[in-house]
Design a protein around this nucleic acid. Structure first.
Length: 606
DNA sequence: TTAGGGTTAG
């Protein structure tokens, strides 16, 4: 459109026709189409709109379709829709192509996907038969809105109208189901029943598994894809890299990188971004930085990925430098970049800088802070022990604090002896979210800390009655391209005997070096000896023991914990890194810990 | 004259 508009001849045409009081009566339709072709801005569109009405073409499907398509190109879909679906319009005269044009426009824009579905509803109401192009748009809208029920209804129509053998429609169906909460198994069912599949089909399913955190299945499916001799493309690679990132599987990630090179797979910016994110979150931040520096074209996503990576590795200072470099290079930060930046300040205890950046969001960059940004600030105050400031900040927030923020406050209260206040906030939370298990866990932990065992037991009983369970802590380790997962007290592994012997040996050696188990962190009403035993069976220690057994001396041990690392395992890892001369790289829910020669990169601040 | 899968945070 841009190039057409700059053509002076077309400009003259549009102005001449609009100025003329007697448009060519023999070809009003062509006249309008030519006008629309040359249109690239809303003021012109409104003039053409008047023109269409003047010529009595408001029921001409050809003109209306062109009107809709041009409108969507210049982001004026709402304007077109209000004209096309005004009270006077006879929408029964419209065809599928006309509807598709608007549905596509709405399905592709961020906040208007519901309008795409509304139009599909009108289409069915007016008995206008959808065609094979309608469904990919409609399903995309369902995927974006994550409306499983509606998606299932649409699935029914697809079957009813006989479009269920079209591979494009089926692929979007897999995508739609995999985007909706609780829909992943339906996605797999559609996937399994497809008579033919291509790289899009496999990427949609692999991406779906990666999205819901069933990354082991994503990896398994990629192996099946190779067996089925379907060639993966760059999009499959991005999905696979997401899965590696989720699993913390550095070796597999490196293999994917090599695969891309070996098969000369096209490397658009999204692939590089996914690689940066993978290396950063799998523990190799220097490689992530190296890739980032080598990129010719950097997008806001590239910058944000590397900033977040730095933050996770406790290099907050460097994260802020990268942010400064980004803005000087002319890339404007968005709200996601600010979440990365603020969490970098939070993770590195840069309170003053965090405050300054938060202030600059509105003043300098005209961005309105969202609840997540307020959350970062509360997190920052709480981590640094500034509980009073955190409470003051929440009181002065222009928006209501969400449960995430309240839970951050409660944790801080527990950590800094403000038990009464913590209890008060938690009870408030439980009123609002009676089925959210972490509220109960928080309260139960406060009772454990204040040695109120009776109250704690009662909470646990309530949880049991309501059928809630605490998410079990687990630690993963990747050895020889296999991923092993341990939970506390795990005996499911073939080598569990050797692992427990190793754990005992580790305990003896650590005690010789001055390690004292932090039994105060064990929130159970048991004696000291049992507490020690319970600490030794933590998933982190089991994974480290397994790593010591199965990897060559002197090589680093990389482990991934699903929750925040416990303080005893944190302290034990320091001792182990020194005693066994091993670097231990641990990713927990929030960040990385690099243990080396008895020290941790986080400086005990996490 | 219209179609499908992908990257950053939470």
């Amino acid at each position: 459109m841009q190039s057409q508009f700059t053509k002076p001849k077309l400009l003259r045409t549009i102005n001449n026709v609009l100025a003329s009081s007697t448009p060519n009566p023999r070809a009003p339709e062509q006249n309008c189409l030519a006008l629309l072709q040359a249109c690239n801005a809303l003021p012109k569109l409104t003039q053409i709109h008047t023109h269409i009405l003047k010529l009595g073409l408001h029921n001409n499907p050809l003109v209306l379709t062109k009107f809709a398509s041009i409108s969507s190109l210049i982001h004026a879909t709402d304007y077109a829709a209000s004209f096309l679906f005004s009270a006077e319009a006879d929408t029964r005269l419209y065809d599928a192509f006309l509807f598709n044009t608007l549905i596509r426009a709405y399905a592709q824009t961020g906040h208007s996907k519901d309008k795409a579905l509304a139009l599909y509803g009108i289409m069915l109401h007016d008995a206008i038969l959808p065609n094979k192009f309608t469904y990919p748009f409609v399903l995309k809208a369902c995927a974006g809105l994550e409306v499983l029920n509606l998606g299932q209804t649409v699935h029914g129509s697809v079957v009813k109208f006989g479009f269920d053998c079209d591979i494009h429609v089926q692929n979007t169906m897999v995508h739609m189901y995999s985007c909706c909460a609780g829909g992943i198994n339906s996605a797999r069912k559609v996937f399994d029943e497809m008579p033919k599949s291509d790289s899009v089909t496999w990427s949609a399913m692999i991406g779906g598994y990666a999205r819901v955190g069933r990354s082991t299945e994503a990896v398994a499916l990629f192996r099946e894809m190779q067996m089925a001799e379907v060639c993966p493309d760059e999009i499959t690679m991005v999905s696979m890299l997401s899965a590696c990132t989720d699993l913390g599987a550095l070796e597999l990630g490196k293999w994917i990188e090599a695969y891309i090179e070996r098969h000369e797979i096209h490397k658009p910016v999204e692939v590089s971004n996914a690689l940066i994110d993978m290396f950063a979150k799998c523990g190799d931040i220097s490689k992530a930085l190296k890739l980032f520096r080598a990129m010719n074209e950097k997008t806001i996503v590239s910058w944000t990925s590397v900033i977040v990576g730095m933050a996770m590795h406790g290099r907050g200072q460097e994260a802020t430098c990268l942010f400064e470099e980004m803005t000087s290079s002319g890339v404007a930060p968005d709200d996601v970049a600010f979440i990365g930046l603020l969490s970098a300040c939070s993770h590195s205890g840069l309170v003053e800088r965090g405050r300054e950046y938060f202030g600059s969001m509105m003043k300098k960059y005209k961005l309105v802070p969202k609840i997540e940004h307020y959350g970062c600030m509360v997190d920052m105050y709480c981590r640094t022990g500034l509980v009073k400031e955190a409470l003051e900040f929440v009181r002065n927030m222009p928006i209501e604090p969400n449960p995430v923020i309240l839970r951050t406050l409660v944790s801080a209260c527990r950590g800094h002896g403000e038990f009464k206040l913590g209890e008060k906030i938690t009870k408030l939370l439980m009123k609002h979210e009676p089925l959210h298990e972490s509220n109960y866990v928080l309260l139960s932990n406060i009772y454990a800390k204040t040695l109120s065992w009776e109250k704690k037991t009662k909470i646990r009983e309530v949880m049991e009655v309501k059928g809630m369970k605490k998410v079990p802590g687990s630690t993963m380790i990747e050895i020889d391209n296999e991923i092993y997962e341990f939970v506390a007290g795990d005996k499911s592994h073939k080598q569990h005997k050797e692992i427990y012997e190793m754990v005992d040996e580790m305990g003896r050696e650590m005690k010789k070096s001055g390690y004292r188990p932090s039994t105060s962190e064990v929130l159970l009403d048991i004696n000291e000896e049992d507490k020690e035993d319970s600490l030794n069976r933590h998933s982190e220690k089991l994974a480290i023991a397994f790593g010591l057994l199965r990897t060559p001396p002197g090589t680093p041990i990389r482990i991934v914990k699903n929750l925040r690392v416990c303080s005893d395992c944190h302290s034990a890892s320091k001792f182990i890194s020194k005693i066994y001369d091993r670097e231990i790289i641990m990713r927990d829910r929030n960040r990385f810990h690099h243990f080396k020669s008895g020290q941790c990169s986080c400086g005990d601040f996490w």
